[in-house]
Design a protein around this nucleic acid. Structure first.
Lengths: 338, 338
DNA sequence: CTGAAAGCGCTAACAC
DNA sequence: GTGTTAGCGCTTTCAG
């Protein structure tokens, strides 16, 4: 057995036909091949364990069957759920997904974007959270622009910071709706556990909540910032408790932080929701069974992954399209009426 | 702007040098290019927004920078955590990950495997759960064998059912250890919530638990089977409760099923762990903060992803290597001493 | 319906 | 150092 994959030339020789005929028989074409030859080629291919070389096909055809997906961290349920939706859609379109996990490092995001561009995928979906770092945004453009100019398609999921088709998550609005609901439930002194200031999601959700709160009540929510993760929520909650601020509910900017916050409360003997109500954002499915059940803002993550791919596979529009996704407030036990 | 990406030829022309020089200047080579020319080429490339075409490079070089990863469902934390580990390792090796989500459908697994083979990745990692379907295993071999024969490397994570390098998860042993521990805690009448019989994980964990139980106690654990998911656990638990079986603890074959089981208990007014203890398997990080904290068997998922890639990137061994991974029993509040 | 041959974009001998 | 050129494996005109 040769340490070399069988090529179409091998198959053609084995079947006693020309390269062209072998190609037509194996990998569709408008041309029709006589049944007898067709069978002979298929047989030869099977005997040789032949698979077409995608690289060579792409070269010859001038296009690939690849789409790139860039996420912050694939082990984060927010991103893995989006990835699942996108993978589903990719399957329907006969596309293969190339996955890049940036770890939230801007430099790595750039590297991966360049790498995906190099792969000449049909499209690239940027699901990582946008920051408000103008320099980085500009650098992204130096990759995105030529890719788009060469016919590549790019979409983003999240905030519309880039001039590309975007599945816009209405973070502000979702957080605002949540604030209104929390207020309606009778809470009076909210706190917010936010992520890093440079993350746009973090700011939007915080600002949205604050805005919603102001609509129906006076007083400003207290804010504590930390990492955008379970551990960040845990630490932020501890600090909040340390501060002695008088609060009756906490809005953590995502479900993971909310879990961390609840863990911190448990450590400190603060009963949720008796002593303190907690709400999150995202409605991560793995966390739907926690107790007390978490009040949150549901995002259609699977759908968002699909939407991004659909957006990016449709004809180019003159200007970047925005497909809005609204979060739905889900009230559960962690914020009982007060 | 042309709807065509700039090519190396374009760059060479723009810089007034030969194709070879442009290639040497841009994409490393032992040959050295004079500084002045080097700069001119880089400049031209930047001006044109040039990125090498990975397909063309692969053709010319005869190798790619791709690795394939096949999982059942990327939104399942078990797989997404493994994927994160593998993506990390891939980054270190300068490789790009192609992700395939099979949805547990054998036919789709085959399709994706063929597709990954077509892409001529350096390696393919099969993380999906193995079944005991001999026919399917044979079909997998028709893809795996020629890929391996042509110098491709394949590794699996899970049960060593395929003659390839495998990160062997010691499911039986982990479940056995858990059973022993449960017994030591004073439980007497265990039940098992298993997944589909055709899944090897499911059988191994069940059999391991049963074996461990027999070592130190008499009586057989009751078994109820359903899907390998949160909903499966939920339904199985309901059926178990309906059956009226006298039990004092439940071992759900993975954490997701355990969550479903706990949800079912809540619905039925069965207090966990007061009325019934519950244990899971995997130690999914997102679920580490649930209450009552779940007793489980911890698997080093991140590490497993890394190991698989390392295994597959090292020199070929004469025979398939097996790298064992042992689960560690973590006792938490959901199984208090009785 | 089948075959010959011209590329696709790039690397790597091989010359100079 | 730099340039020329022969492929890499495949698709697709263009002839027959």
């Amino acid at each position: 057995m040769p340490a070399r994959a069988a090529t179409l030339t091998d198959v053609a020789r084995e079947a006693g036909v020309s390269l062209a005929t072998a190609s037509r028989a194996l990998n569709g074409s408008d041309r029709v091949v006589r049944a007898e030859l067709h069978a002979r080629v298929l047989e030869a291919a099977a005997r040789l364990g032949y698979t077409p070389n995608a690289q060579a096909q792409s070269m010859a055809r001038g296009s690939t069957d690849l789409v790139g997906l860039l996420v912050n961290d694939i082990s984060d349920p927010y991103f893995s759920t989006i990835a699942a939706g996108l993978a589903d859609a990719a399957e329907e379109h006969g596309l293969l997904v190339m996955l890049g996990s940036t770890g939230g490092r801007p430099a790595r995001e750039l590297e991966l974007l360049a790498e995906l561009r190099r792969q000449r995928g049909r499209a690239i979906v940027l699901a990582g959270s946008r920051t408000n770092d103008r320099a980085h945004l500009r650098e992204l453009s130096t990759q995105v622009d030529p890719f788009a100019a060469a016919g590549g398609r790019v979409a983003a999921i999240g905030e519309p910071k880039l001039p590309v088709d975007t599945v816009v998550v209405e973070n502000r609005r979702g957080a605002r709706d949540l604030a209104v609901e929390i207020r309606r439930l009778g809470y009076r002194r909210p706190a917010i556990l936010t992520g890093p200031e440079r993350l746009q999601v973090s700011r939007d959700r915080r600002d949205g909540f604050t805005a919603g709160w102001r609509e129906s009540a006076s007083g400003e929510p207290v804010c504590v910032a930390d990492e955008f993760s379970r551990d960040g929520g845990f630490r932020a909650m501890h600090r909040l408790l340390d501060s002695g601020a008088e609060i009756d509910c906490v809005f953590a900017i995502n479900d993971l932080m909310a879990m961390g916050a609840m863990a911190a409360c448990r450590e400190r003997g603060v009963d949720v929701p008796q002593d303190l109500a907690v709400a999150g954002f995202d409605d991560i499915s793995t966390l739907r069974d926690v107790t007390p059940a978490l009040t949150t803002v549901r995002l259609p993550l699977i759908e968002m992954g699909r939407m991004a791919l659909d957006l990016v596979l449709n004809d180019v529009a003159a200007k970047p399209r925005r497909r809005k996704v609204r979060g739905e407030v889900i009230v559960r036990e962690s914020t009982p009426p007060r």
